[in-house]
Structures are given as C-alpha cells and as structure tokens.
C-alpha cells in the first residue's frame, strides 16, 4: 500500500467516520443521562434526510433553509419522542424502556414506508459539494471537506455548550449522578429534553450529509448506521462527546482500511462494527459505560 493510496483511504475513512461520530454523540449523551439505548436514534438520520429532501425538491426551498429546517424539526422530534414515549416510563424496569425504544424506531420506519413509500429517493446534490480537490495523487471530494468542517464546528459548539452553559453542565452532572442534580434544584426533565434536542440535531446534520454522500433516501436507511454509531459510542466511552466522535472516526477508518488491505473482505465490511463490539466487551471486563455498582 503506497502512501497516496493510504492517504486516499484516510480521506474516505474519516468522511464516514465523521458521520458515524455525529450520530454516536447523540447515542452517547442519551445513554449517559438515561441509561437507555435509544434505538430510534438512527432513524432520526432518515427523518432528517426526508425533511431535507422534501424541502428542496417539493417546496423548492433554498439549501440552507431546507437544512436548517431539517435540523430544527428533527431536534423537535427528538424531544417529542422522549416526552411521549420515554418519560412516562422512566421509573419502570429498563427492559420496558428498551422495548418502547424498539417500538418507536419501528414506528418511524414504517410510518415513512406507509406515507412516503419504500422506493429510494435520490437526494439532490447541491453544486457546492460536488467535485473534488486534487492534491498530488490524492483526491479529496468537496463533500468530504464539508463533512470535516461541519463536524468539527458542530463538535466544538457541542463541547462548548456542554462545558460552559448551565444546562450543559447539568447534563454532564446528570450523566454521573442523578441524585446530586436533584439536590442542585435543576429541572431534570428540561435537561433530558435538551439532551435529546442536541443529540437529535447532530444526528440530523449527519443525516443530511449522509444522504449527500449516499444519495438514496429510504425508510430503513438509519438502521445500520444507527447500530454502528452505537458501537462507536461504546468504543469512545459512553457519555463522552469527544469520545463518541473519536469512536466514530476509528470505526470509519477500520471499515475502510480493512477493505483496502484485503479487497476480498469487502463483503464483510458491515460486520466490522459487530466484531469490534465483541472485542471491546472482551477487553474491558469492568464495564464499558462505567456501570457503577449501586449498593
């Protein structure tokens, strides 16, 4: 493998990695705060892709408006899902919340199927993301540049919000210890809603860029990325935002490089995340999500 080939793969790997990372952050934050695997999180990617698609193609909205709308509406949907489906059962056993999450995920997918149809829609690629920049033998798609920049900016904003704002700090506190936060007098439900909104907005941004990269929008497009993003979140240490982003990068790079090194393994690309998950479980015996033993 020569250098320029490796660099080229690096570009590809980082691009998918960024998208996994954006999706992983929301997973990570929600698990951190609620100890709930929000199976519906991956489907938000699909929802945002559809909203973006309709905004541009049906309503002829300008790109920025359509994307901003997709992000805002998806964030709202995230809040609604929590309020409607998860909040009423916060106190019941975890398995109930997990089942509800599966139900919400299935509902979103099949609602899309019923109302929009199963035929993939081709997402329009705007002018400013087409083409690529060539440096030596390495060609960097303009879309990848956008993905890197947008991911970095969103990550920076997200970290700033979590580290500097009151509600962000409450969120971090909540993901460590519920009781302390209640003592501080923070409204727990507001913090949780905020977590869902933030995570969903990032997933939505990821969804838009995802459908520019793989321009087929269909009801089940979020399932596999969702699963992989969860692995990325686990890899980066659940609850940690920068960890989730890193986890996404590592997963993206692993997928791309394994296929680059062993082209005949290309069929197994979607299995990489699964085996990575097994390896993590085997090598971190004390628990991945910092499962604190209650007494």
């Amino acid at each position: 493998m020569d250098l320029s080939f490796a660099l080229q793969q690096l570009v590809y790997g980082l691009t998918v990695g960024c998208l996994y990372g954006l999706l992983a952050i929301g997973y990570s934050m929600v698990y951190g705060v609620l100890r709930l695997i929000n199976f519906a999180h991956g489907d938000l990617l699909m929802v945002s892709a559809y909203i973006g698609f309709f905004g541009i193609v049906i309503f002829n909205l300008p790109w920025p408006v359509s994307f901003a709308g997709a992000i805002a509406l998806t964030a709202l949907l995230g809040i609604l899902i929590d309020r409607g489906a998860y909040k009423p059962i916060r106190k019941s056993p975890r398995i109930n919340a997990l089942i509800t999450a599966i139900g919400v995920s299935f509902l979103l997918e099949n609602l899309a199927l019923v109302t929009i149809g199963g035929r993939p829609k081709s997402f329009p690629t705007p002018q400013f993301v087409s083409g690529s920049i060539v440096i030596g033998d390495v060609s960097i798609p303009t879309l990848s540049v956008w993905v890197f920049v947008v991911t970095l900016v969103l990550l920076a904003i997200c970290m700033a919000v979590v580290k500097r704002t009151r509600i962000g700090m409450a969120m971090r506190a909540l993901s460590r210890d519920m009781e302390t936060v209640m003592l501080m007098g923070v409204d727990k439900d507001r913090v949780i809603s905020f977590t869902f909104a933030l995570g969903s907005a990032l997933a939505a941004a990821g969804g838009i860029m995802w459908s520019m990269k793989y321009p087929a929008v269909e009801p089940f497009m979020g399932v596999v990325p969702g699963l992989k993003a969860f692995v990325a979140a686990v890899l980066g240490g659940i609850g940690s935002i920068s960890g989730a982003a890193m986890g996404g990068m590592i997963l993206g790079l692993a997928e791309v490089f394994i296929v680059a090194v062993q082209p005949e393994w290309s069929g197994y690309r979607d299995a990489v995340a699964f085996f990575l998950m097994i390896v993590i479980l085997l090598t971190r015996p004390t628990g991945i999500m910092g499962e604190r033993l209650p007494d």
Partner: peptide
C-alpha cells in the same frame, strides 16, 4: 461478562 444492555445490541447486530 459485563452488566448492561449489551445483549440487545449484540444480538441485533
């Protein structure tokens, strides 16, 4: 080997 809801994710995967 660890506590947590990993069975859900691993069996789904």
């Amino acid at each position: 080997r660890v506590r947590g809801d990993y069975l859900a994710i691993v069996s789904l995967g």
